[in-house]
Each structure stands twice: as C-alpha cells, then as structure tokens.
C-alpha cells in the first residue's frame, strides 16, 4: 500500500475500469451461450437414459460441481494445450481469453444441464399424455407443451447462475486476461492505491449485478404472465 487513502481516486478509477467492462461482459455472454448449448446436449442423455453417455455426463457434472472454478481454469489453461499437442495442434500462443471462455462454458454447461434436466422432469407426465391424446407429435409436445413450461421453472435458476458466473469472471485475471479485474491489478501496480481500486471494482460489479437482477426480475414477470396471481410458484 504505502500511500495515504484518497477517496477522490475511487471516482477517478471508475471510468478507467469500465472501459474493460466489455471484456468481462464478453466472457459472460459467450460462456453463457456456449454453456446453454452444452447444457442442452448434456441434459439429453440423462433425460432419455442413454447408457454409457449418461454415466459420462454424470461424471462430468460431478467433477465440475466438485472442483473450484479456479482449479478448472488452471486445468484448461495447462491441460488443453497438452491434450491438443497429441494431435500436433499448437495452441500455447492462443489468447488467454479463449481459455477463460472455454472453462466458463464447460462450467456453465454442467450447471445448465442440471437446471434443464430438473426443470423438464418437474413437469407432470400427464401434460405429455394429454398432448399425445389430442394428436400432437413428440416434437410438437416438446416445443409447445414441455418447453414453455420448463423455461418458466428453469428461469430463476438460470438467472442466479448467470449472476454467479459474472462474479466468477473476476478470477480470469489469474491467467493473465485483461478484463476489469486485470486492469485493476495493473492500476494497483502503477499507482499503489490498492484499496481505492478494489472499492471502485466492487462498485462497478455491484452496479452490473443490480442491473442484471432488475432485468431478470422483469423477464421473470413476463414469463409468468399467464400464471394465477402473476407470481412465480418456485
């Protein structure tokens, strides 16, 4: 630290840091989209009880839920180049940002898979039977009956995990990504005002989380518009 605490610096640092908010949000958006895709693919074997694949997915989900995101980040960062080296693909010079996006996508994928699976299995089987009895096909049953109900159940969990994921992006700087936190670290190195930098960072993260929470709350109300009382049942 070394220098005197200067509250004026907190305000001064915020514009510098928000310039790098884009990278943080980029990690969040890409890893959420890829995570949803992985989650859908991973939920299918568990829902349809496909042998072997189901066990593999269970192992994958258990591993992701059983290890810290920091360890996963290091494993991908050091492990992926080693694995790809077996096929003579050299990615050691790849931008660290891609490693971060891969890690967070894999991590989100496991969490989303569990969310999707539990949402779909929460829907009463009578719904499917009713859909078949009025002559719907399997596909129609899924996208007209099951999916709209499942998304409503899954939404609060999805929004929680996206907010959790945003907070996790603050660890990306450990492998040298220049996101908001990474910029904060360089600011500390150049100004030696660590506390002020962390206060500014906390303010920016907090504002982003509050905005996300508001957006999710409005979306949730929209998704629940056909529910009695207009409130979520979960």
């Amino acid at each position: 630290m070394g220098k005197v605490f200067d509250p004026a610096l907190i305000i001064e640092f915020i514009p510098t840091l928000t310039k790098y908010l884009g990278i943080t949000l980029e990690i969040l958006i890409y890893s959420t989209i890829l995570g949803i895709l992985i989650g859908i693919v991973a939920a299918i074997p568990k829902l349809f009880h496909i042998p072997i694949l189901k066990q593999m997915i269970t192992l994958y989900i258990s591993f992701i839920r059983g290890t810290p995101i920091l360890i996963q980040l290091f494993l991908v960062y050091y492990g992926l180049p080693a694995v790809l080296m077996l096929w003579n693909i050299d990615i050691t010079r790849m931008d660290a940002l891609y490693f971060v996006i891969i890690t967070y996508s894999l991590s989100n994928g496991a969490i989303f898979a569990e969310i999707f699976r539990s949402a779909i299995s929460a829907i009463n089987y009578g719904q499917t039977e009713a859909a078949y009895s009025i002559g719907m096909t399997r596909f129609q049953n899924f996208y007209r009956i099951i999916f709209p109900q499942a998304i409503r159940i899954a939404f609060p969990n999805i929004s929680n995990s996206i907010i959790g994921s945003l907070k996790d992006t603050s660890l990306a700087f450990t492998i040298g990504v220049m996101d908001m936190m990474g910029r904060g670290e360089t600011l500390i190195a150049s100004t030696a005002h660590a506390l002020e930098v962390y206060i500014s960072l906390a303010i920016v993260y907090y504002i982003v989380v509050v905005i996300l929470e508001k957006v999710f709350k409005i979306s949730e109300r929209y998704l629940n518009r056909y529910q009695p009382n207009g409130t979520a049942t979960i």
């Binding site: 630290m1 603050s170 660890l171 660590a194 506390l195 962390y198 509050v210 929470e213």
Partner: peptide, 19 residues
C-alpha cells in the same frame, strides 16, 4: 455482499482493515 465477488471482500478487508 451478494452482489460482489468474494475476491473483492477478501481484498477490501485485506487492504482496508490494516488502514
């Protein structure tokens, strides 16, 4: 505390409390 990453809390306490 729910809206900011845990690393912030550690850093804020680590640098703030000694001050």
């Amino acid at each position: 505390f729910r809206g900011t990453p845990a690393i912030m809390h550690i850093m804020l306490i680590y640098f703030g409390i000694p001050l």
